[in-house]
């Protein structure tokens, strides 16, 4: 792969001392009849180490935004810099490299492999880094211990509760120590107690230095976060920081 391109992409990034995310005037239109303007000129900067909540009603464009932050989707116009790289100038291999090493995802539906152990699910988070299996499992073990599932490692994920499953998914996302963890309604499928547990885990990861972006439709949840970005109709309605 052309690492030159990546280096160039990194160096031409808009200035920003320690930005993990820099969006400028991002537009995303889903083609169709009529086309859906999911993001309508959205600008956002997230610094290293932040814990950000994306809040807004259903259909506001939150998931679309998260996909663009995670380089799973591309903006139709505007510029996107993730971890210093100009995403618009990168090819599939370079974007995949970014996802493999710098971005962790957590989804509402967990997306775990039910047939294998929690340990192997987490180890698969490192599959595309090219690390050998033994090292992937070693890292998975320490990460599972970190999320409080040290005693469930060898259970299949269909033997775990919803809250435990989402913890496994979080462990998979952070096993590779990404620059940024993206979570799309991670508590959406959980009861409030398990949801609170997963949220606590995100807070812990944040305290330990991980940049976390979490989508939540729940204002109470959002209120517990140090920064809330409110989205409505593909635009930022307001962006508030709580000072502790």
């Amino acid at each position: 792969m052309s690492t030159d391109t990546l280096a160039t992409a990194a160096s031409t990034g808009a200035a920003g001392a320690d930005a993990v995310v820099e969006l400028e005037d991002v537009v995303r239109v889903y083609p169709g009849h009529p086309p859906v303007r999911a993001l309508r000129g959205l600008s956002l900067r997230i610094d290293r180490g932040e814990l950000v909540g994306i809040v807004g009603p259903s259909g506001a464009g939150k998931s679309t935004l998260l996909h663009i932050l995670g380089t799973l989707d591309q903006a139709d116009s505007g510029t996107v810099h993730i971890d210093g790289h100009d995403v618009g100038a990168m090819n599939d291999r370079q974007l995949s490299a970014l996802r493999a090493h710098r971005i962790g995802f957590v989804f509402q539906q967990f997306f775990l492999n039910p047939g294998v152990s929690a340990l192997d699910n987490v180890a698969d988070g490192l599959l595309y880094t090219g690390a050998p299996l033994a090292r992937r499992r070693r890292r998975a073990r320490t990460t599972l211990e970190r999320v409080g599932l040290g005693n469930r490692m060898h259970h299949r994920t269909n033997e775990l509760s919803g809250g435990q499953r989402q913890r496994v998914a979080v462990a998979r996302a952070v096993a590779g120590r990404p620059s940024m963890l993206l979570a799309d309604e991670p508590t959406g499928a959980l009861d409030s107690a398990s949801g609170a547990g997963v949220l606590d885990l995100l807070h812990e990861l944040h305290s330990a230095g991980t940049t976390v972006v979490v989508i939540t439709p729940d204002h109470d949840v959002a209120d517990s976060l140090p920064r809330q970005v409110h989205i409505l109709d593909g635009r930022i309605e307001h962006d508030e920081r709580r000072t502790r």
């Binding site: 990546l6 990194a10 210093g84 970014l98 090493h101 090219g130």
Partner: peptide, 10 residues
């Protein structure tokens, strides 16, 4: 950036 530069290819 703390980890700027090209990420290792996947």
């Amino acid at each position: 950036n703390g980890r700027a530069g090209a990420p290792t290819p996947s």
